[in-house]
Structures are given as C-alpha cells and as structure tokens.
Amino acid sequence: MEKSNENKLNALVGHSGNSDVDLVVNIDINTKAIAYGMLCSLYAKGELTELQLVRAVEVLDKLIRRDKRRRKSKKNLANENKPALLDPPEQSSRRNRY
C-alpha cells in the first residue's frame, strides 16, 4: 500500500515542472587585510623582528600582485574564448505582403 502512495508522490514532485538547475556561485573573499593584521600581531607579540615584518609584507604584496596578474590573464582568456554576440540585422519598417 505504501508503494502506491510513494509512486504518486514521485509523480507529483518529479513532474511538477521544476527543472534541475545547477547553480554555481563564486565567492571571492579578500583576505589581504587579515594577512596584514596577522603579521602586525606577530610583530607586536615579539615573534617577528622589524626586518622579518618588512620582508613578510614584501612577500605578501608580491603574492597578491602575482595572483592579480593570474586572475587577469584567466579573465582575458575566458573572454577570448567566448563567442561574439552580434546584433541582429535591423528589420525594415515595411512588412512583406506576399
């Protein structure tokens, strides 16, 4: 008896007109401020010397610049691979009467 109820439920939900949609959400969190804060915290606690702090900030900036270049080049490649969308030809105001 339960089997027929289950089949009816599947039919109602499975064919309700809703389609399977894959949704992709990219979340980009800028962690640069957190990284700088962590370096300053290590310096304030005495775990880094001033020279080590300067070097760490330089390396962090270098990594951030490299990441920006990589993202920019990937974005450019993605744009090059997309097909060009052309405007449709303009239609005349007269209609064919044939």
Results as ranks from 00 to 15, higher is better:
residue 5 N to Y: 06
residue 7 N to T: 15
residue 7 N to Y: 09
residue 8 K to C: 05
residue 8 K to L: 05
residue 8 K to S: 09
residue 10 N to G: 07
residue 10 N to M: 12
residue 11 A to S: 01
residue 12 L to M: 12
residue 12 L to C: 07
residue 14 G to F: 08
residue 16 S to V: 07
residue 17 G to M: 01
residue 17 G to I: 00
residue 17 G to Q: 06
residue 19 S to W: 13
residue 21 V to H: 11
residue 25 V to I: 14
residue 27 I to K: 07
residue 27 I to H: 04
residue 28 D to T: 11
residue 29 I to Y: 09
residue 29 I to V: 13
residue 30 N to Q: 08
residue 30 N to I: 04
residue 31 T to H: 09
residue 31 T to F: 05
residue 33 A to P: 00
residue 34 I to R: 11
residue 35 A to I: 06
residue 35 A to N: 01
residue 36 Y to N: 10
residue 37 G to L: 03
residue 37 G to P: 04
residue 43 Y to H: 08
residue 44 A to T: 04
residue 46 G to R: 00
residue 47 E to V: 05
residue 48 L to D: 07
residue 49 T to A: 02
residue 49 T to R: 02
residue 51 L to N: 10
residue 55 R to N: 12
residue 57 V to N: 05
residue 58 E to P: 03
residue 58 E to N: 13
residue 63 L to M: 15
residue 63 L to K: 12
residue 69 R to E: 02
residue 70 R to H: 01
residue 72 K to R: 13
residue 72 K to T: 14
residue 72 K to A: 15
residue 76 N to L: 05
residue 77 L to K: 02
residue 79 N to E: 08
residue 79 N to H: 06
residue 79 N to C: 06
residue 79 N to F: 10
residue 81 N to R: 02
residue 81 N to Q: 01
residue 82 K to C: 05
residue 83 P to M: 07
residue 85 L to C: 09
residue 86 L to K: 09
residue 87 D to T: 11
residue 90 E to F: 04
residue 91 Q to K: 11
residue 92 S to K: 00
residue 94 R to E: 14
residue 95 R to Y: 03
residue 96 N to R: 08
residue 97 R to E: 08
residue 98 Y to Q: 12
residue 98 Y to E: 13
